[in-house]
Simulated scan of single mutants.
Amino acid sequence: MHLASVDEARERLDAASRIVVLTGAGISTAAGIPDFRGPQGLWTQDPDAELVSTLSYYLEDEDVRRTAWQRRLAQATDHHQPTDAHRALVALEHQGRLSGVVTQNTDGLHLDAGHSPAVVHEIHGSARTCRCERCGHRQPMAQVLARVGAGEADPHCQQPEGRGTCDGILRATVVLFGEMLDPHVLQACVDAVERCDLLVAIGSTLAVNPAAALVPFAIGNGARVVIVNNAETEHDDLAHDVLRGDIQDLVPRLVR
Rank of each mutant, 00 (worst) to 15 (best):
S28E: 00
R65F: 07
P39G: 07
D112T: 05
A76M: 08
G136T: 11
S28W: 01
A118D: 15
E50Q: 15
A118F: 11
H137I: 14
P47Q: 08
Q139E: 15
D48Q: 13
D78F: 09
R138I: 10
R65D: 12
T106R: 01
A88D: 06
R65W: 08
A76W: 08
A127M: 14
A25T: 00
E122N: 05
L109E: 10
V144Y: 13
Q75S: 14
P117S: 13
D35G: 00
S53W: 10
A118L: 13
L109H: 03
Q139W: 09
D63M: 12
I123P: 01
H94Q: 15
G100S: 05
D107I: 00
G108T: 04
E133F: 12
A88L: 10
L59T: 15
D14H: 12
V120N: 04
A49Y: 03
I123V: 15
G136Q: 11
I27G: 02
G96T: 10
A85N: 01
Q143D: 15
Q75W: 07
A74N: 11
A88G: 08
Q70W: 12
A68K: 02
G125F: 09
C132H: 09
G38P: 00
R97A: 08
D35R: 02
T23H: 03
Q81F: 01
Y57F: 12
L73P: 10
P47K: 07
L111A: 07
A113H: 04
R128D: 12
G100M: 04
